[in-house]
Design a protein around this nucleic acid. Structure first.
Length: 912
DNA sequence: GTCGATACGTAC
DNA sequence: GACGTACGTATCGACG
């Protein structure tokens, strides 16, 4: 059966653009999407189809725009970097010999649909290469979709599995769900599940519409409301099958490629490997995904998007001593050891090891099951023997190791007396430093993005939800496929990512000198945990609960009936419908807000708002902190062992969860009582050391503003000094209100606040706020220039940098949507300060941890962005305090001193 | 029971 | 629309 491959050029281009790091050639022309398209096309060339077409959108409006003026109104404009690659792409595709079709007045989808329909009728097999789900309506016997990125195909059965409807129901399905990107209205609140349910029951949209009055509930109302517009939506989502075309299917054959044009383009866009192949006269062969790492980002990108065509790697299940010995030998001579542990829990403090996987060469890995335990489980090597044999290797700093999120595995190994040394690389952190926002940094996402590879998912081997089983119950052969792949993919990711970092010395330095050394430090803090006075928390919980009950009774009295105080929805009904209080604030969705600002605004009109405010304050403390913390304390250690996340914050900060120790209350008296539960053991004290005004100091450093630098060099109260400058007074003449205004400006500026925001913050009118800001900028012109140049840099480069060269890419700088763009600009201004502060405290942590090594009289426990908390033996407190302050102050050499304030007490609250 | 969206609030 | 970065809890509606 002859075959026609139809390539959805727009889909290709967009996907390649977003999948690849922003590459460019020596002239600064963007090339990433071009390269991605080129690589995807190679697979098509290799398949040698009889007929092929590359179908692309033609510029200008289509019949859908005429039908509906809001069509695609929500779609952001094509990014400039992508637009610049459209023409070169078409040139390249043409030179490679592909017939190109662009038809004005219709979309590429319609041309593809028409050709697919014609070919189908002529008995030609059709494969549509696309990532667009709308194309599912074309599927039938002999017409399939292939997704080039994931290398998956979709036939009739596949459509049903994915959407829950037959291909011939897809048009009705899409009509019901609508499409927010293309701005096609559907039925409100009707998602894929509801649409599939209805179509299963009524078969067609027409039938459903005829029976719309039988659908009950709110969603039924939504359906009836949408009825008038559904026919239009259906027309919009229907792909045309009758576009008049000049060429027939059989005209669509590959032409000879234009060697000279290709050579010129390959050279221009620096496709070095392709150029080499061309000159060697070799047909373009698929590059091996396990090839030695190349240095240039371009040649690397080639590896990134090319799926492993040789199939899965070779994975060995190790259950005999001889096999294990052979692997030990491999480890001893390995340049880099990729390792991964499998355990019984995602919580590393509670997890037991189940098995371990290793890889020293891409495509080759082993899994060593240790404690799999299910009926009929085969004999496994002894856990203690295996870990005992691996211990000297894992603890040898001269043997480099690689992990994916290695902190977790370090924690696991530590349960078995192995203190891992020599962590050289972590693929999660490589990706995070290369581009913190382009992707999530879990292995599945990274493999998809950087290797074009779909990993075996944890859910597939262990199930999910209530049906999830412990990894120890997973069949060891299945476990091997999953676990060995983890080690293999980790190594392959490293081969993909490390050359990228090497090509950018500053990023490499942030990675090697900050992030990697920080891993064992954070692991140590997690394992140590912080001692909690559970009784203190329980007592506080009780007292809070009692007061909440009282407030609840009073609130019910004020409302005239009982209602759920925790439900904003019920509260809206009571306040605004029943009591008729004025709505002064709305939520982003347009509903009346009941947040603090809203309640505060009507607190003088009625007793209820104040009662709710008081109740909320207590409820927050109790549910989030006193109850939760007491619950989460490890009964064995009496401590809470938080998780620190190194790849979660775009600016480089570390975050904390389970529990989040970085948002424990401090501003109110009742809140500080929670901090009193963070204690030190008998004979020990809590030491808390924090940077004073670090972000403002960084702003002074980065801007070089003389006035601000002087304020910090003179010491004293910087907000007071600012107020004195702005209001033209002596520092001692500054009023409390003036100082408050200056402080608000100082903070607000770092967040990109506008005069409007400042006015709101200070409760003054906008003109007055504008006046303050104008005076501020007149006194501190360097700050204004710095902010302007930061915005410029962001627009020029697409990213901003910290003092140490950490990079933050801004996504929405070119958005057509004003709010998005303004938001990106504010983020651009804030990132260098927040990020530099993060770099500095990370460096301090590494230095302090180094100093603490080998001591048993002090432990670093917590990091709260600009603060480090320790427990220290009473007799060592002065020495430790001095050493900590020195290392924190010395973590960076700025044009202003880095002042560190350290306090000591029996608990965290007292230490402040 | 589980999940996602929404609203709210805590920290730096 | 208007101040950056996180994480956690509760409610509510939908799903299975």
């Amino acid at each position: 059966m002859p075959k026609l491959i139809l390539i959805d050029g727009s889909s290709y281009l967009y996907r390649a653009f977003h999948a690849l790091p922003p590459l460019s050639n020596a002239h600064g022309e963007p090339t990433g999407a071009l390269f991605g398209v080129y690589n995807m096309l190679r697979a098509t060339i290799k398949a040698q189809p009889e007929y092929v077409a590359f179908v692309s959108d033609a510029p200008g409006p289509t019949f859908r725009d005429e039908m509906y003026d809001q069509y695609k109104a929500n779609r952001p404009p094509m990014p400039d970097d992508l637009r610049a690659q459209v023409e070169p792409m078409l040139g390249l595709v043409g030179a490679l010999g592909f017939p190109i079709l662009r038809v004005t007045g219709v979309e590429a989808d319609d041309v593809i649909g028409t050709l697919a329909d014609q070919a189908h009728k002529q008995g030609i097999e059709v494969v549509v290469s696309t990532g667009d789900k709308d194309m599912a309506q074309l599927v039938r016997d002999g017409v399939t979709l292939v997704n080039t990125m994931t290398n998956t195909t979709m036939d009739t059965q596949g459509v049903f599995e994915k959407f829950g409807v037959r291909p011939d129901q897809i048009i009705d399905f899409l009509t019901l769900t609508g499409d927010t990107v293309d701005n096609v209205p559907g039925v409100a609140k009707c998602g894929p599940k509801t649409a599939a349910k209805w179509l299963a029951e009524y078969d067609t949209l027409d039938n459903l519409m005829a029976n719309a009055d039988k659908v009950g509930g709110k969603i039924g109302e939504n359906l009836r409301e949408a009825l008038p517009q559904l026919p239009l939506s259906r027309q919009l989502v229907t792909i045309k099958l009758d576009v008049p075309l000049e060429q027939g299917v059989t005209d669509l054959t590959m032409r000879p490629r234009d060697i000279d044009a290709l050579r010129e383009m390959y050279a221009r866009y620096e496709f070095k490997a392709a150029l080499k192949e061309l000159d060697a006269g070799e047909p373009a062969a698929a590059p091996s995904p396990v090839a030695a790492p190349a240095i240039s980002p371009e040649s690397l990108a080639r590896e990134l998007v090319t799926p492993d065509l040789s199939g899965p790697g070779t994975y060995e299940l190790v259950t005999t001593q001889a096999q294990f010995d052979a692997w030990l030998e491999r480890l001893r001579t390995a340049e880099l050891i990729a390792f991964d542990t499998e355990t019984t829990s995602i919580d590393s403090m509670r997890a037991d090891i189940v098995g371990l996987s290793l890889s020293v060469e891409p495509g080759v890995a082993c899994y060593i099951p240790l404690t799999h335990d299910y009926p009929g489980a085969p004999a496994q090597l002894s856990r203690d023997m295996v870990l005992g044999a691996l211990k000297p290797i894992f603890e040898d700093p001269a043997r480099p190791k690689l992990g994916q999120h290695a902190k977790y595995d370090i924690n696991i190994l530590s349960h078995y007396g192995i203190a891992l040394q020599g962590l050289k690389h972590d693929s999660m952190l490589e990706s995070y430093i290369w581009n913190a926002t382009a992707t999530r940094h879990d292995m599945d996402s990274l493999a998809r993005k950087y290797l074009g590879y779909e990993t075996v998912k944890y859910e597939e081997v262990a199930g999910k939800g209530a049906k999830q089983i412990s990894f120890s119950q997973v069949d060891i052969d299945t476990a091997c496929r999953y676990a060995a792949e983890d080690a293999d993919v980790t190594l392959r990711l490293h081969h993909a990512l490390w050359p990228l970092l090497q090509s950018e010395p500053k990023l490499r330095s942030v990675y090697e000198d900050i992030e990697i050394p920080l891993v064992p430090v954070l692991a140590g803090m997690e394992q140590r945990g912080v001692l909690i006075d559970v009784n203190h928390l329980r007592l506080q919980s009780q007292q809070l609960g009692k007061r909440m009950l009282e407030l609840q009774q009073q609130a019910w009295g004020a409302a005239g009936h009982e209602f759920n105080l925790d439900s904003p929805k019920q509260l809206i009904a009571v306040l605004f419908d029943e009591l008729g209080l004025p709505i002064k604030v709305k939520t982003p969705t347009g509903a009346p807000s009941t947040n603090e600002e809203a309640l505060e605004a009507i607190a003088d009109d009625h007793a209820l708002p104040r009662l709710i405010l008081d109740y909320r304050g207590l409820a927050k403390l109790r549910s989030t902190y006193t109850e939760k913390l007491a619950e989460i304390v490890n009964l064995r250690t009496g401590r809470v062992h938080t998780s620190y996340h190194q790849g979660a914050v775009a600016t480089g900060r570390v975050s904390s969860s389970d529990p989040n120790l970085q948002n424990i209350p401090v501003r109110t008296e009742e809140g500080r009582r929670i901090r009193q539960a963070f204690v030190a053991p008998e004979g020990w004290l809590v030491l808390a050391a924090d940077y004073s005004q670090i972000e403002l100091r960084i702003m002074a450093h980065l801007s070089g503003d003389e006035g601000l630098l002087r304020a910090f060099h003179e010491g004293g109260d910087v907000h007071r000094a600012t107020a004195a400058e702005v209001f033209g007074l002596q520092p001692e003449e500054v009023s409390a209100n003036q100082r408050r205004a200056a402080k608000a400006i100082n903070f607000g500026l770092m967040y990109g606040m506008s005069a409007f925001g400042l006015a709101r913050q200070l409760g003054v009118d906008r003109g007055e706020a504008s006046d303050y800001m104008a005076r501020y900028f007149a006194r501190y012109p360097g700050v204004r220039d710095f902010m302007e140049s930061t915005r410029e840099q962001a627009h020029r480069d697409g990213y901003v940098e910290t003092i140490f060269g950490r990079r933050l890419y801004l996504e929405n700088l070119k958005a057509r949507n004003q709010a998005l763009r303004a938001g990106a600009e504010r983020a651009a201004v804030n990132a260098p300060m927040q990020g530099s502060a993060a770099d500095i405290i990370k460096r301090a942590m590494i230095a302090v941890a180094h100093w603490l090594k080998g001591r048993d009289d002090a432990n670093m426990l917590m990091q709260v962005h600009d603060e480090l908390v320790f427990e220290v033996k009473r007799e060592s407190i002065d020495e430790v305090r001095k050493a900590v302050v020195e290392r924190m102050s010395g973590a960076a050499a700025l044009r202003v001193p880095l002042l560190v304030e350290a306090g000591v007490g029996a608990n965290w609250d007292e230490a402040h």
